[in-house]
């Protein structure tokens, strides 16, 4: 039996007046959607995995390795935020290049990797553009290209496409799903749209008041779950 790609054991975290407590195990190569009401702790869950928040107790393992004490840069994780994924004053190529070397020391091979990553997300020819000259979807593509060159086994996405329209959102989800297949990454995506989960995620977890209340195959979770909180979240 292989190690889970992501494993949270009894991870506690106090956010304002809510005591959160997470237990979660994600198998390697899973595409997991995380849904739940606003303020339920979805983003905190990702922040704990990425290392932006420090748990009060418990352990976080990535691929069998305890990373609880590691700083964000040392964890085998890439995280995409909803906004500000790029440095506004640096061009597309430099933004991607920073994913390879934080001091921007790039070899010829690195330049090739950047070019192929940009090609993969459909942004060949955009190298010298500044983020301000791109659309919202294009900016997130650049961030995805950086995730590609970083080549970490875990990709965390925090409502990355919430600001995009429905069609574009589906297109971006498809791109993430393709990358997920090609690279055999473990993907966690926080979303507010149940249809996003249905569209792309093999499994879905429901988070409520700082706890993972349910996790199952996406369709199974939506159709057979008899959890009042989930029904309340979905139907109102």
């Amino acid at each position: 039996m292989t190690n889970p790609a992501i494993k949270l054991s009894d991870v506690s975290f106090d956010y304002e007046d809510m005591a959160m407590r997470f237990d979660l195990a994600v198998a390697p190569g899973d595409f997991l959607a995380i849904i739940g009401p606003s303020g339920s702790g979805k983003t905190t869950l990702l922040n704990l995995i990425a290392g932006f928040e420090t748990p009060a107790g418990g352990h976080i393992e990535l691929d069998g390795l305890d990373v609880t004490a590691l700083p964000p840069g040392m964890r085998p994780v890439t995280m995409l935020f909803q906004d500000h994924n790029l440095f506004a004053h640096l061009d597309v190529k430099t933004n991607v290049g920073l994913g390879i070397s934080p001091a921007l020391k790039l070899t010829a091979a690195d330049h090739e990797r950047i070019a192929s990553a940009l090609n993969r997300v459909g942004l060949t020819g955009f190298e010298r553009r500044l983020p301000g000259q791109l659309s919202g979807g294009e900016r997130q593509r650049v961030a995805l290209a950086r995730a590609l060159v970083r080549d970490k086994p875990v990709l965390l996405l925090d409502e990355p496409f919430a600001a995009l329209g429905p069609a574009l959102r589906r297109e971006m989800l498809d791109l993430v799903a393709e990358i997920h297949r090609e690279r055999a990454m473990t993907v966690l995506i926080v979303t507010h749209q149940p249809e996003d989960a249905r569209h792309a995620a093999t499994r879905t977890a429901f988070v409520n008041r700082g706890r993972v209340l349910a996790m199952d195959e996406t369709e199974a979770l939506f159709t057979t779950a008899n959890i009042p909180e989930l029904a309340g979240y979905l139907i109102g």
């Binding site: 990425a50 290392g51 964000p72 840069g73 935020f81 994924n85 440095f87 640096l90 934080p102």
Partner: peptide, 24 residues
Amino acid sequence: GENWRLASQLGMGAGAIFRFIEWP
């Protein structure tokens, strides 16, 4: 704030942070 998270994820040191974030 996301710039700081990004910097820590990319493992930037004080020098890179000054060059890519603070100085601009």
